[in-house]
Design a protein around this nucleic acid. Sequence first.
RNA 1: GCCCCCGUAGUUCAAUGGAUAGAACGACGGCCUCCUAAGCUGUAGAUACAGGUUCGAUUCCUGUCGGGGGUACCA
Length: 624
Amino acid sequence: MAENDFDLQKLQEHNRNLEKIALEVAKNRPKEREKRGYISKDNYFLHNLAEKIAKIASKEFGQDISVDDVNLAPVPPKFTADIALRIPVLMKDIKAYNAELLPALQKALNSEKNDLGLTMVELVPPYLNLSLDFSVFGEEIIKSVVDLKNRYGENDDFKGKKVLIEYSSPNVAKSMHVGHLRTTIIGQVLSNVYEKCGYAVFRLNHLGDWGTQFGKVGVAYDLWKDERGELEGQENPVKYLAQLYADFNKEAKENEELNEKARNAFHALENNDVHMLSLWKKFYDCSLVEFEKMYKRMGVYFDSYLGESFYQDKMDKFIEEALEKNIAFKDGNAVVCDLTRNNPESKIPTFLLVKSDGATNYSTRDVAAFYYRKQYFKPDFAIYVVGSEQNLHLKQIFETVRQLGYQNGKEAVHVGFGQIKEGGKKISSRAGAGGLDDLLDFVVNEAYKNMKEEGRDFNEKELREIAEKVGIGALFYNDLQNAPAHNIDFDMERILSMKGKSGPYLQYSIVRGESILRKAGELADVKQINWQKADKLEKIEKDLLKKVAEFPAIIQTACKSCSPHHIAVYLNDLAQIFNHFHSVVHVIKSEGDLKEIRKYLVYISVQTLKNGLNMLNIPIPERM
RNA sequence: GCCCCCGUAGUUCAAUGGAUAGAACGACGGCCUCCUAAGCUGUAGAUACAGGUUCGAUUCCUGUCGGGGGUACCA
């Protein structure tokens, strides 16, 4: 065996190392999370208000009303009130909505209005419209942001729980392209959000580092390395490999023998053939270097890279068990999984656990991975951020493990997401749409050009740094503003315009806010401010306070629905209100307590926008 | 064929069963002697179609039409 050869023993060592890292994190993460501490919802005015209303309503109706049923909503502009309480939702567990019960509740709330921080409770069936006492509300909201700072918005809903999030999972020996953007961003952002809601988060990159594609690339490499050069000398090894893969597929269309060779090669890999294993390791190593470069640029990180190859020796057990439990049957060398045998209701189509050549496929590895994770990481909840074209596949996996007895409830979910389209078609070649790296460069360059054209007063180094943040922000926001399930339209022109509803819009709002704070001087001591003056604030300023107060609830919604776009949309609304405020109220020219309160309005807006962008993994330039 | 997802202004997207369906881009106007105009602001413009459930439906159910995806030896 040559010195550089990679054999079974070395593969096992490689896997043990990966495993060690993963187990270490699994062990320590809950402690780390605990140590970081939790933010109680008692810090939030609207939460407290809802609790108090629940208590009063429970007493009034003689039955327990849950806080979750206290539905507080914005009020349409034609009313002067600030918050609407939706009564039918409040009553949903008691009885059918009954308008006759409203006056009594209104009276009860009115008699407690001082304690609730309200000035008035009006009856507009089926709503009770609440008017806030801004001298109380303003102080409370500002205090909570000042106290919690970069942790404003967090909650402890899932204190003590563990979540495992699988995302990104690119294929080794292929370039990352725009198609990987969604799983990577959505997964990273969900990780961020879950952590803010109290979870100990385990971030997992289920690398596509095993499978027939290795046979293909391996065969292609051996076939063409003499004319194309060895991998070691390549300037961009991953592009080189990706090209091999593409060319192989093209050739194989004409020549079925090649596919046969590739299958044999993968089979050899699964049987620990030293040559194939050595190639595998080479491809693996250079791909990982490339991936990590990309992740670093995007601010994305993982706790573990336990990929498909890790499970190559952990699959036999399930195949046997599936056969024993009559979930699967043999067909020659193949093992076919038929989930309708034990559960005719499922109507799930059959699929292979073992191919007719004896090799495994991704279903086999996903089942093994599920079991392994459950056994060693013990998550309370697992999220698979995988494209919705794999809906059926994941349905099959979840049902298989259920029938094998590994899973009881809804502890694993698939967060599917739509594809990135360009003019209704699957994205192909336009500017920058090839590799992800090129795409990032392209967007960053545009941000750079924008600043040059506007004659911004920055030196070259600053320009580059800012452009990097603005470009990436534009790209991320474009993705995150969409509901995950929908296909999204990749309109390069719109991303590059960086105007209107966009990442740069949010960044710009922060930058302008920060600028005011720099010029306005130190913030006054919160205790020294006469909060009665908050009543004199303009309508837009009261709107701003109300919007900031909504932030914690938005985080909860995003978490519970696995939908980061709620945060993206909210931040845009907040920035709009802030910018409107910015244009009609001159903070620095204001005087006395009103000026101090306004400085705080800027401060809490900036802080909330920052907290939101951090969660969305969108970088924040100090100036732009 | 069967299964899943989607259908909202000209375009791209929002809207936990609730009040007058919100934005952005594009179009046509207005605002820089004032905290960064990547900003603010005015006007025009939408729930595919037909039924049903509900006090109330863009949202839930059924059907039709349209778009996307999947449908065992790629992942």
